[in-house]
Amino acid sequence: MPDEKKEEAKNKVHQDAIHQETIRKEQRHQMLYNKFTINPLKKLHVLSDKPTVSKPKETIEKSSELIEAFHFARQVPSKKYPEPVTESHEIGWSTEPLIPSDRFDRRFNHHRQRSDITRDI
């Protein structure tokens, strides 16, 4: 029985040593980031202030990185990237019409036509 207690104590010592080594490895490879930016892939919703609370409005510099990142995030993907990034971007990437539109060309414009059956009574 005394041997079993020594084995348990030995196992706990070994487990503690493994745990300490794991923590040292994690701390060696971790990086601390101090510069935070907004996620350009997420839409931003601006909320208005409460009407009963009056506080001075904050002014943001015109050339700040935050405003540039905000405008970049709100752009259409075809203006952000030179070519489609994903498969779903390929659908609708080119929005220019293949043929110039002519409203009087009856081949492409089928305006509503009324007949005796569809006419309102």
Rank of each mutant, 00 (worst) to 15 (best):
P84A: 01
R74D: 08
K43R: 15
A9R: 11
Q27N: 13
K12F: 00
S78I: 01
K5G: 01
K43S: 13
P97T: 02
S115L: 04
I67M: 13
R106I: 05
K43A: 13
N11Y: 05
S78N: 02
K57C: 10
D116C: 05
P100E: 09
H110N: 07
E7W: 03
S48T: 08
E7K: 11
K35T: 14
P40V: 13
S88P: 00
I38A: 12
Y33P: 00
P56R: 12
H19V: 00
V53H: 03
S94N: 15
L66Y: 09
K25V: 08
L98Y: 04
T86D: 03
K80I: 03
Y81D: 02
R119F: 07
N34S: 10
R103M: 06
P51I: 06
S88I: 12
H71I: 06
K10F: 03
L98K: 13
P97F: 01
A9K: 11
N109G: 00
V85A: 05
R106E: 11
P84W: 01
E4A: 15
I60T: 07
S54F: 12
T22M: 11
N34W: 08
I91R: 10
K6S: 06
P97N: 07
W93N: 04
F70L: 15
E90L: 13
R103Y: 06
F36L: 14
H110K: 08
R24G: 01
E21P: 00
W93M: 02
P100A: 07
T52M: 03
S63G: 09
P97Q: 02
I38H: 04
N34E: 13
I18K: 14
I91E: 15
Q15E: 07
S64I: 01
S115T: 15
K12D: 01
K10M: 04
H45A: 12
F104V: 00
S54N: 09
T59F: 10
F108E: 02
